[in-house]
Design a protein around this nucleic acid. Structure first.
Lengths: 341, 341
DNA sequence: GTTAGCACTCTCGTTTGTTGAGTGCTAACC
DNA sequence: GGTTAGCACTCAACAAACGAGAGTGCTAAC
């Protein structure tokens, strides 16, 4: 269903005004403000048409119109032009990233802050579990009497560790030789090949240092099983409070409940689909409690896995800015990851 | 200034009722509910006295009384009996901790969740920077062509790492020998002794593998300088929304702004003082924006440093429950830390 | 097809009146 | 002297009534 130019023009005017003011917009107002070359009465007729088509709705008879979710959807799909980050902003982000590059957690946090500050919405970043294929290196470090640390480095450069108990009698020398055995056995070993039976046979083989070996094997099993959940980082929740649609405490509570509970949030966010920016508007969301929110989301790649980054805000969202920003940020993340990891 | 029994009784009744209902409490109401053996008129007279002393205040003439901050202070200091965790709760917490013991971050998160769920207030935990004295172990692990990872284990069992670039030409064998040199030099070296001049002389000494060494030294310098900030973990922010005093959006915004910004929150929370539970009521707080909140806080010990744990809520707080719970949790943390680290 | 004019609708803010909880004071009581 | 019943008074909270203003839909003229 395609609209004629004038209807498009009117729909756009209403959307822009409504997004800015959060108030229903009337015929007179847009004629004045957007210099449409027709009278308010004409606009009213067109607005009635747009309402029939489902793109506008009226909170009550004597109010102006507001865009319906379909209206936003039409605009986003057929009319919208993204506003990408301007050069200054890109440089700022790149600088921020460079300054924090050593610490991955910091990088994520910074991106989240940046995104929520630029868009004025709440941002989220999902960091996927980086699966690993191979053991790169295993090290056993004595920490204090009776305690040691098992350190595993994977081919993707992920560092994992577990504390284990060891018999007090074991010498550092001995640990060193156990170390070597492990490294010989595991080096370049595909993770997928490491089945429990393997671990078992290893256990038998090294039976004489049973206690220590058991501890290590258990730690490794534990590490490989529990490869860690996806991590979710939220930033700029405070921005939600500025949206007039969430002045209502009950609504606010529902929204914060979603944002505070990782599992719920994960259930809400759509999968990342390829290289596109995905926009979910209002009732399109999977959760009923999120039916007044919209999500703008893009995927980024990290070690073969796909992470997600985006913003979440009211249906009355500056989609053009949000989509452009999220897309730019995704691109920058991809670049930085490619370069440095 | 000490109060006679009846005044105490009345003050307590008012505090209990007010904390429960968040409404001013009238003379009739407490006579009925708390079975004081006098009439409402008598209570009114006593209440007038208590108001003169500054322990009660009246929102407006024809309303009941509410406890003033001094009233709460008097109650907390002179009358309150803490309600510690009951045995079931203690066991639950211990179990939660045991299940997550391998991952320190998880432990902290669990404690925070537990605390906010039990008290129904917002909980916070500050994990101090664990300073370290000695290098325990340094390892250089090649990750991929041109990249390696420097892993440092300290005497306190903290694991730190940095990625560095290395010339593609360097062989794994070579890395191994560099490794050994480092471990020989650093082992048991007090951190305090490691001055830049030392690093410089080392640089000279190992001049021939300059590129690699430089990278490593830089990473180590970087690690020791930036020993990491204290970490702050907040949990149960949502509980704030249930407090009627924060129904007002502006107040809520101020509070969430404090909770969201780590630096501000750190500025607000008082230092931990020895083994006592510290209670800060309303305007006693350092920040003006926090003048309607109270903080209940205790210190715990970790590797010689002091961390802080507690809850934050409205002035109208169940101090007895909060103080008891925080104290119990502190004790349990201390025990668990002592046992497992 | 477009536009001016106009009656109509509905929200929002203000005002006014009513209700009820709670107080402070006084006078009587023990 | 301390305690209590009685009563007039105060004030917030709620509801009903009202007017103003914004915006619409319809009709008739251009």
């Amino acid at each position: 269903m395609t609209l004629d130019e004038r209807k498009k023009r009117i729909l756009e005017s209403i959307i822009k005004d409504y997004v800015e003011s959060a108030e229903p917009v009337g015929s007179r107002a847009i004629v004045k403000k957007h210099d449409l070359r027709v009278s308010a009465a004409t606009v009213r007729n067109e607005m009635a048409d747009l309402e029939d088509m489902g793109y506008l709705e009226q909170p009550h008879t004597s109010a102006g119109r507001i865009p319906s979710e379909s209206g936003f959807r039409y605009y986003v799909d057929c009319m919208m032009e993204r506003e990408n980050l301007v050069e200054d902003e890109v440089e700022l982000l790149q600088k921020i990233l460079k300054d924090n590059l050593q610490d991955w957690d910091e990088v994520i946090q910074s991106i989240g802050n940046f995104l929520s500050q630029v868009t004025r919405y709440t941002s989220f970043i999902i960091v996927p579990t980086v699966k690993f294929d191979e053991f790169k290196y295993i090290q056993l470090v004595p920490v204090e009497k009776g305690k040691a640390m098992v350190i595993v480095v994977t081919d993707t450069g992920v560092l994992m560790h577990r504390r284990i108990d060891i018999p007090q009698s074991v010498e550092t020398k001995e640990l060193q030789s156990i170390n070597e055995v492990f490294n010989r056995l595991f080096a370049r070993k595909k993770f997928a090949e490491l089945r429990k039976t393997d671990l078992q046979s290893l256990r038998d083989e090294l039976n004489q240092r049973k206690k220590v070996i058991d501890g290590i094997l258990e730690a490794i099993e534990n590490l490989t099983e529990n490869t860690g959940e996806e991590k979710v980082v939220i930033s700029g929740i405070l921005n939600m409070l500025n949206e007039p649609e969430f002045k209502n405490l009950d609504k606010l509570k529902k929204i914060l409940a979603i944002l505070e509970e990782e599992s719920v949030l994960k259930a809400l966010l759509p999968e990342a689909t390829g290289d596109t920016v995905d926009i979910t508007i209002g009732r399109e969301n999977r959760l009923d409690d999120a039916k007044e929110m919209s999500i703008v989301l893009a995927g980024y790649k990290i070690f073969g896995e796909v992470g997600r980054v985006g913003v979440i805000g009211p249906v009355r969202m500056e989609y053009w800015k949000a989509a452009g920003t999220v897309d730019s940020v995704r691109t920058i993340i991809d670049e930085v990851l490619k370069k440095h990891y």
